[in-house]
Design a protein around this nucleic acid. Structure first.
Lengths: 331, 331
DNA sequence: ATTAAGATTGCAACCGGTTGCAAAAATTGT
DNA sequence: ACAATTTTTGCAACCGGTTGCAATCTTAAT
């Protein structure tokens, strides 16, 4: 196997404690022994076993990164940001794919077995059993991209979806659309519910506006396309706020298939601002979620929670921003 | 902290070994004690500490999953498949983002510190220093989506890029294109080099065919678009084999911007067959890499290499397949 | 009932580190 | 040069498990 502390100690002619202390900051070692140890370590190619040390220190520096969004391109960007940020902070992401087929119980047990220091759930919904299990085990959980106050015993970082809904509605109204559609994601999704609430609130305050509400079966291209095709058969609205960017692209494809165009015939505003939204052939007007900030803040929060296990659950909400592009008629 | 083996032993009235053995398969425990232990464990909510046990068994069941492809949507699918497959096999992916800015040395040390059992590098290129470092540490490495024989001391699973090039060329020739373009990825990329070789080989054997070769700056939408815009200024070919699907979509966008259409004015064939390629508004004819097979095979191979550290480096190549869609003129 | 073979059990040492404590060494002050 | 401090060091116990070994208990066979 690999070189161990003991071997380094022997070669350096010091005790094992001395070696250990050279690699523990804040420990007392004279420059002389440190030098000797470092020399021996280099010669042997020693690197300390993080797992063994975790046994006594109680810190693995492992963070469970849990998600079920393995089909939304936005999450590739999110994973990129998370892995980098965690690496920068000296933490290691243990990735868990929590897709429907996979057993949550199992993932849970697994994360406990590996004694992760903390958990980041990057998903719009968080299973309550999950939150509870980690809470019981005193493992900090941050729900990233989560719903504010959905689970009171968990830190949450994300956007205010109600406000996103309002923002979408205001944007459409400002452009003079009178017949407006809300084409949401799956009916039960909390994100959909919240956005719809904000959306309807603003529309309700305006005069002479007609609204249509419908839902796609999933946050996916296919579902967005199917939903829009259905809309086009009945009398469609002039512009739609779509559940997310992927759905929006599906909707755009439906519009195109019907021989229509955006924004000339139907306007679309999406949500997320994933990288693809600014591709010239898509050029989607959308509401941007500040994913970098959400990620950075999530990591910061999980670290803070690590240091103070009894820290009060906290919600951090970031504001979104309309990205003007080409799928809504101009102001 | 969490419940330990000792506490379970006390409550069950047996020795620590007995408890340990209940959770080690193949160990000798009577049904009676097993029952007692399991009862006590349940009551206490015990789950064994995988890290502590790794200390003696020398197996962490941690697999380093290293990639630098955090901008190619195909890799979201790849990560999905990898995480699921590894989970199914009882292994845990420790994700490492090896983007240019991040220090490879650092990642390397990290993976050693966490004593990963094996490493899967999901990237078209593998730094030789990486391969060597793991080889020295006797940690099996599988280079997934790698180049055959690029590094002789490493297992590799992927496709034969030379054959992909040939396939692309044959496909274009079969459709009667006479002026053909190879619009590759970055010049130095081995994948580009290999595909080009196969492509030119077939073209060279055909009669009366004109070829143009050019390279995009990266496997990205922007680069693909820029490269195609440039092509369109000079006399473009009738059809192009593009470096990958993302580049192809960029190229399509350029064609559209120029007021032209695929396949009427210019044909495009891509490579990868990422999910998006079959979206109706893209409908890209492309060469499919069997990513599920590559992933499954990679996981299987890393497991095999785990069991036999002296297993001979092996290359597993899968064949690709043309996916007929709408960006090439029909046969 | 007696014995040999097989299964089960606990002891104790070990995996690769960390850390409290007391002894030893170095430093300071006079 | 000597005592009082401060720093550095090694010992030994511990973190949470595993495992070889010898002792004990079962079971089967005579």
């Amino acid at each position: 196997m690999a070189i161990t502390l003991k071997e380094v100690a022997e070669r350096a002619g010091v005790s094992r404690s001395a070696v250990s202390r050279t690699y523990t900051d804040g420990a007392s070692v004279s420059p002389k022994t440190r030098k000797k140890v470092e020399k021996a370590a280099k010669e042997l190619g020693y690197s300390p076993n993080a797992l063994a040390s975790s046994l006594t220190t109680g810190r693995t520096k492992l963070i469970g990164l849990i998600s079920n969004n393995f089909h939304n391109p936005l999450f590739l960007e999110v994973f990129d940001l998370f892995t980098r940020r965690l690496q920068e902070k000296g933490l290691r992401p243990l990735l868990v794919n929590l897709t429907d087929e996979t057993d949550p119980e199992h993932s849970l047990r697994m994360l406990k077995q590996y004694s992760v220091d903390g958990v980041i759930v990057a998903s719009s919904t968080l299973l309550p059993e999950f939150a509870k299990a980690f809470h019981d085990a005193k493992i900090p959980v941050v729900h990233s991209f989560g719903r504010f106050a959905s689970a009171p015993d968990v830190h949450v970082v994300g956007v205010d979806n109600v406000e996103c809904g309002r923002m979408a509605a205001r944007t459409l109204l400002a452009r003079g659309y009178k017949h407006i559609g809300f084409l949401g994601g799956p009916k039960g999704a909390t994100s959909t519910i919240d956005r719809r609430a904000g959306f309807m609130e603003v529309i309700g305050q305006a005069k002479g506006i007609k609204v249509k509400v419908s839902n796609a079966a999933a946050y996916s291209f296919e579902a967005g396309r199917a939903a829009m095709l259905k809309e086009l058969k009945a009398s469609p609205a002039e512009a739609y706020f779509c559940g997310d960017d992927v759905m929006s692209i599906g909707a755009l494809s439906a519009i195109e298939s019907a021989g229509l165009a955006a924004p000339e015939d139907i306007g679309i505003i999406g949500l997320n601002d994933m990288e693809m939204a600014k591709w010239e052939n898509i050029n989607l007007t959308t509401i941007r979620q500040p994913i970098k900030q959400i990620v950075d803040s999530s990591v910061e929060l999980v670290i803070a929670a690590l240091e103070d296990r009894y820290r009060h659950p906290e919600a951090r909400l970031f504001s979104c921003q309309v990205m003007e592009r080409g799928t809504l008629r101009p102001l």
